[in-house]
Design a binder for these strands. Structure first.
Length: 578
DNA sequence: GTCGGAAGCG
DNA sequence: CGCTTCCGAC
């Protein structure tokens, strides 16, 4: 059935073929579910995978950072989306829940059953779909999920969050296996733009997630436990796993064995341009096992063999909605690649995507020891530029301003002008971080948001996230200035406000990615302003509404706008200085 | 069905 | 924080 991807055979790759559900810790109730073999399949022939706790007999391993480390440190509970994902990748449950429709879309065919399973898993006998769905709805705000309007029980994963952020190293190759059920259609080349990869915002925790080596631990254990359904602590079942993991953890701590890319002299992570040299061009993947670079990948989406990672495979206008096919959970093709090269490629790809979609620098995946080459913006895209602004899609991106999600707490007592440091709801420093002139530049988080209606996330939300990703900063600090051209488009857009400093053809070479992004954002923003308002289908984008009214205790549109501008300006200055 | 506020829990 | 529980509104 599921063919093993040859590539997966390498010792550095994990694969899954088992459809057992031991990790779900639940048992199918109805006979229609073939009893999930209690086999842990491949077991842990993976001891060698230092730095990774993975496998666990799962179809896919969860690197430690797969779990938000900052959240529920002690909590060993599986998260709903995680659970859903697991169900989804199990054939046994295809009658209950399955991928269907668009990329990342899944349908809960049997809400009650899913709820029951979830209840079992969480030891919440009273669980029902109503409750479960409420939990699901909470994911909307987190951008992990969104509802597919009009389709009952249908939701859609935002794999950009889950995969790119939580499983960045996942080799999403489809490993020759057929296309999963309801193989998502290949985007009709521009009929409508879908949402670009979102940025690792909330899901991606500020700093720890992808960096600290220490993070590459413990989580797997949680996962392992999560696989147990004893409703207690689940220490037994996967003990072996845990042990090995624990061991790895111990050893992996400092040097982080495993995938430490070839050391790049100088900057461990900043030598973007040198990467291509350091790493030989990756082997050509199968046509259907593209990295994120080719979101379109899919039957018929035979993109040319992977181009150089530096070359944008995915045109700007293409959408990037990972499909179940590409999902790591896909039974046939789910495997993680711990191969440094793969990871590197993946990161490159992602980075490229981020670039292509003009996303926030934060969208860049950031890994210790992995150097990601600086992508190049498709100046002269092989394909026509983004769809011409139309009523349908005025611009590839729109900015929607969204205040930091108002947590319940904040809502309750919406008064703290000076927030108690701990109260940063959602980790967003709200507007407080407006201490301009600070060496700390305001960070702008731009992330696409769900557009619901015609589905995809056409919009982008901007939020001040000053506090986040200081580390990410590095990535954008005066990269070795690869021989990169760029900026024509930006140029014009920037003309208005950006200092002439680094702009236009050559000078732009040295423009930090960050700056370029911000320019880009500015441009987009400007466009939006020009084309006038747009529908705000997404309810979450309340921030936009705030623009007119009051700041409801959060960022108002203007405010963000200002922030943006200032940020841009400062960046420009920064750039000039450096 | 779906949504999201509110409150509570661990 | 990530739900769970409850519920009114649409």
């Amino acid at each position: 059935m599921w063919e093993l991807n040859p590539r997966v055979q390498t010792p550095l790759l994990y694969t899954t073929r088992d459809h057992s559900l031991p990790e779900l810790g639940i048992e199918p109730r109805s006979p229609r579910f073939q009893s999930p073999p209690a086999t842990l399949t491949t077991g842990l022939h993976s001891r060698q995978h230092e730095g990774w706790r993975g496998r666990l007999g799962l179809g896919f391993a969860f690197p430690d950072w797969a779990y938000k480390p900052e959240s529920s440190p002690g909590s060993r509970q599986i998260q709903l989306w995680h659970f859903i994902l697991e169900l989804l990748r199990k054939e046994e449950y295809h009658d209950v829940i399955a991928w269907q429709g668009d990329y990342g879309e899944f349908v809960i065919k049997d809400p009650d059953e899913v709820a029951r399973l979830w209840g079992v898993r969480k030891c919440k006998p009273q669980m029902n779909y109503d409750k479960l769905s409420r939990a699901l709805r909470y994911y909307y705000n987190k951008r992990i999920l969104h509802k597919t309007k009009g389709k009952r029980f249908t939701y859609k994963f935002n794999f950009n969050k889950l995969v790119l952020v939580n499983y960045p190293f996942i080799d999403m190759g489809m490993s020759g296996a057929g296309v999963p059920q309801s193989a998502p259609p290949v985007p009709s080349g521009g009929s409508h733009f879908r949402f670009p990869p979102s940025t690792p915002s909330d899901v991606l925790s500020p700093a720890e997630d992808l960096r600290s080596p220490g993070v590459f631990s413990a989580v797997a254990r949680r996962l392992a436990r999560g696989s147990v359904s004893d409703c207690s602590d689940g220490t037994s079942a996967n003990s072996e796993v845990e042990e090995s993991l624990a061991e790895e953890q111990r050893r992996g701590g400092g040097e982080t064995g495993g995938f430490r890319g070839p050391p790049v002299p100088g900057h461990p992570r900043l030598a973007h341009d040198s990467l291509f040299r350091v790493y030989p061009r990756p082997r050509v993947p199968e046509p259907l096992s593209p990295f994120p670079v080719s979101p379109m990948a899919g039957p018929g989406a035979l993109l040319p063999p992977q181009l150089s990672p530096a070359l944008p495979l995915t045109p700007n206008h293409m959408n990037y909605t990972p499909s179940p096919t590409l999902s790591p959970m896909y039974p046939g093709g789910s495997h993680f690649s711990f191969n440094p090269e793969d990871m590197k490629r993946y990161l490159q790809a992602h980075t490229q995507s981020v670039y292509n979609y003009h996303l926030s620098p934060r969208a860049f995946l950031h890994y210790p020891n992995i150097v990601i080459p600086q992508p190049q913006r498709p100046e002269k895209p092989p394909l026509p530029p983004p769809p011409p602004p139309t009523e349908e899609a005025p611009a590839p991106f729109k900015f929607k301003l969204q205040p930091p999600p108002l947590g319940r707490r904040n809502r309750d007592k919406q008064q703290p002008p000076a927030m108690p440091q701990g109260e940063l709801d959602g980790g967003l420093p709200s507007s407080s971080s407006s201490s301009v002139t600070e060496p700390v530049l305001p960070q702008i988080k731009v992330e696409p948001i769900s557009e619901g209606e015609s589905e995809e996330d056409l919009t982008v939300e901007v939020t001040d996230i000053s506090e986040e990703d200081e580390d990410d900063e590095e990535v954008f600090k005066a990269p070795p200035a690869p021989p990169e051209k760029s900026g024509e488009e930006e140029g014009q857009a920037m003309a208005a406000t950006a200092p002439p400093a680094a702009r236009g053809g050559e000078s732009s070479k040295c423009i930090p990615l960050k700056l370029r992004f911000k320019r880009r954002w500015r441009e987009d923003q400007r466009l939006e302003a020009g084309t006038g308002g747009e529908e705000t289908d997404d309810k979450k984008v309340k921030g936009e509404d705030l623009g007119g009214g009051g700041g409801e205790g959060s960022l108002g549109g203007r405010r963000v706008s200002t922030e943006l501008q200032r940020a841009t300006a400062e960046l420009s200055l920064e750039n000039r200085d450096s």
